[in-house]
Computed example of a mutant assay.
Amino acid sequence: MADETVNVRYMVENVEASVEWYVTHLGFSLISKHAPAFADVRRGALRLLLSGPASSAGRPMPDGEQPAPGGWNRIHLVVDDLSAEVARLRASGVRFRNDVVTGPGGAQILIVDPSGNLVELFQPAQQ
């Protein structure tokens, strides 16, 4: 099971801007792009599906509710040096949701993609 791909879908406002952000700032690689509707990018075993308003995932639900980006669910990326990542991302203008939070398991911070989706960067505590 370790070699299996994990697929996560994020609703995004702009597929092109989202692809650029994930590739530039977080080291994802492009798998395919069918803008403006959809693209998918990969980092390790994570395949992130970026679905715009024109995608089938962006269609209204039967009750009329429209899928939208944002919320508190997030992908969780483990990093070796959180301080260095924070400095690098701040220097490139990435938006942060909070400051570094430290707990018994490690330290984390939330960054915000161009559509308002969260990405958690996490550095495990030293054992």
Rank of each mutant, 00 (worst) to 15 (best):
D113M: 07
V119D: 02
D80P: 03
L26P: 13
E85M: 06
D3T: 12
A45P: 08
P36Y: 02
I75R: 00
A2P: 00
R74Y: 04
P124C: 04
Q66F: 06
D3N: 12
V23T: 13
G106V: 00
R47Q: 15
T5P: 00
G116T: 02
R90K: 15
S92L: 13
R43W: 14
P60I: 03
L26I: 11
R95S: 07
L89V: 04
A84E: 14
S55M: 01
V78Y: 02
V94F: 08
S18L: 00
S51D: 01
D99H: 08
N7V: 15
E120N: 09
M11I: 09
P124N: 08
V8A: 15
D3H: 10
G27V: 07
M11A: 15
T102D: 08
V112F: 07
V15G: 01
S92R: 14
N98P: 09
P104R: 07
I75M: 01
P104L: 11
V86E: 09
E4H: 11
F28H: 06
V19H: 10
G70E: 04
L89H: 04
R9S: 14
N117L: 03
G58H: 14
A125M: 05
N14E: 12
F28R: 02
P36C: 12
R59E: 05
P53E: 09
V119K: 06
V79E: 05
G103Y: 15
L48C: 06
P104Y: 08
G70A: 08
D3P: 00
I109K: 01
A54T: 01
M61W: 11
V8I: 12
V19S: 07
E13G: 15
R74W: 02
W21E: 05
R43G: 08
Y22D: 00
